[in-house]
């Protein structure tokens, strides 16, 4: 796969002596949506800030489209748009003024038609002459997105784009993200919310304590670490699990009306058909059955627990 950002041995120790990133290696594919998942203080913002030039890495190297972020900073930075985690905007600037400022700062030629369309896409156009301080938090978030996209970047970083955002804006945001993706923009977003990563990303990287624990395709991650649960409703309740089923990882609920069989999808020793067969043989009368898949959240909790 063609990679657009290549991170090699990146580490960051802050002046305070705190090691926020410990040798991170990561290849980000051109045109993908990558979610970086991790708890507070994991190092997500530190990683993004290093790539964007907001902080200097302590060691390691990063290239964007083949250019080094330090020796070729002009080329790499003009390819990147960043939506920061905090709502940092000049209170007295107007929406239009600040977006035009951003475009100019990134060295792009003036293009009012493009900016106009951008503001329309973000439902900001009717606010274009408002001062930032008169906007709601959600609208400020939109302004930050508009600023990040003002110079038509190839790579977009969204640092916790949905913090403090309502359902409506979240939907809008995913629409925009999908549109950008279709245009070939590579998108990296950080989040605490597993559903979010599950919903939008193609690959998920899990960060904890400054280490990248894993990066995998979302589906593969679900498959390799995902557990499935086979839930069977019984026609007649029973007091205990029949003895021939005891060797399997089968549990009975309190009312005795449902049994559940939990198995790891990738585990070779798990044989669902054998279990089903045995269940039928045991004389239990089945009413209904369904399979549930564990969410990324469960996977993540397991991963971080292992780490600790």
């Amino acid at each position: 796969m063609d990679s657009i950002i290549s991170i090699k041995g990146l580490s960051k120790t802050y002046n305070s002596g705190f090691e926020a990133l410990k040798t991170v290696d990561l290849e980000i594919n051109r045109g993908e949506i990558l979610a970086l998942l991790g708890p507070n203080g994991a190092g997500k913002t530190t990683l993004i800030s290093s790539i964007c030039g907001i902080i200097s890495p302590s060691s390691g190297s990063v290239t964007v489209d083949g250019f080094d972020i330090i020796s070729d900073f002009r080329k790499t930075r003009s390819m990147i748009g960043l939506v920061p985690q905090e709502l940092t905007l000049g209170a007295f600037d107007t929406v239009w003024g600040t977006v035009r400022f951003s475009r100019g700062l990134f060295g792009a030629k003036r293009d009012d038609a493009y900016l106009e369309q951008l503001l329309k896409d973000l439902s900001l156009f009717d606010k274009k002459d408002s001062e930032i301080r008169a906007l709601s938090g959600g609208m400020k978030r939109r302004v930050l997105i508009a600023k990040a996209l003002s110079h038509e970047p190839k790579v977009l970083f969204l640092d916790e784009p949905t913090a403090g955002v309502d359902v409506e804006l979240r939907k809008d945001m995913w629409k925009i993200v999908n549109k950008l993706r279709n245009q070939g923009v590579t998108i990296i977003l950080t989040t605490h919310y597993i559903e979010e990563a599950e919903e939008i990303a193609e690959r998920v990287g899990v960060i904890s304590n400054g280490e990248l624990l894993l990066v995998e395709k979302k589906d593969e991650l679900m498959e390799s670490l995902g557990k499935k649960q086979l839930l069977i409703d019984l026609k007649e309740s029973v007091k205990k699990i029949p003895s021939i089923l005891e060797k399997y990882n089968i549990e009975l609920n309190e009312e005795g009306t449902q049994i559940s069989y939990t198995y790891v999808v990738k585990d070779e020793t798990a044989d669902v058909s054998e279990v089903l067969h045995e269940i039928t043989n045991s004389g239990l009368l089945l009413k209904d059955l369904k399979v549930e898949q564990s969410s990324l959240e469960d996977i993540f909790v397991d991963l971080v627990k292992e780490e600790l």
Binding site: K75, I80, P84, F106, G107
Partner: peptide
């Protein structure tokens, strides 16, 4: 205010 992030992330020396 923190808006310096933009200056630092821009292709500006």
């Amino acid at each position: 205010t923190g808006t310096i992030y933009e200056l630092l992330s821009a292709p500006v020396s």
